[in-house]
Amino acid sequence: MSTAVADNKPAAAEVVPTFTATLMIRRFDPEVDEEPRWEDFDVELYETDRVLDALHKIKWEMDGSLTFRRSCAHGICGSDAMRINGRNRLACKTLIKDLDISKPIYVEAIKGLPLEKDLIVDMEPFFDSFKEVNPFLMAGPVKGGKERKQSPVERARFDDTTKCILCAACTSSCPVFWTDGQYFGPAAIVNAHRFIFDSRDEGAGVRLDILNDKEGVWRCRTTFNCTDACPRGIQVTQAIAEVKQAIIKGKP
């Protein structure tokens, strides 16, 4: 028995290959800097590392003052949306090896929201728009029985827009939102869509009225930036188009 255990001893751990990548990070410390500045870091990384791991390495081993948001680190919480090589993505879902590491990787905060520090922006205007569309079930007492029943087909109608994690990648990739923060933005419309097309909800008229405004769906220019940016693969532009159609028809 003891010899068998000795035989199973693993061979000396293989050295996992690493590579060095350069990250250019747009830093901003409101107490020191007048303007944001770019700072570069050379980080040694594994094949399996994501941009978030690189940021951790910088924060934990090189410069503790680097500030960014992250919570679950697995693409569910939506805390770490940032602009990586000019595209809005989640740092925790972007593998370094999928980027071109022969050039520096540019990481900056998402655009269109007030910059607070380094990669952190003030999300309040974004959530204000979200709150504005009444993102909760609006329904009276249940008629007949105790449950609000829904068929699988009715559920599938709005399935795509239930996937939103409110990371703001779509809204902060929208050129209309960049120049006019008053626009509701794709994320708010997606979350309105989720209830407008829910057969159990009775507040569709209210939400359509809210979005049928000067800063509502009519400001959408169908540039598809939001659909490209969505880390959850939601067909955002299509959802906005469906809301437009619902407004014209007066019902979902």
Binding site: K131, I210, N212, D213, K214, G216, W218, K244, I248
Partner: peptide
């Protein structure tokens, strides 16, 4: 609670909508 933070349109012609349809 649920007081809208911005005023909503109250009647009148919705120019943005008709502009879009036009």
């Amino acid at each position: 609670p649920r007081t809208p933070t911005r005023g909503h349109r109250t009647g009148g012609i919705n120019w943005e909508k008709w502009g879009w349809i036009y």
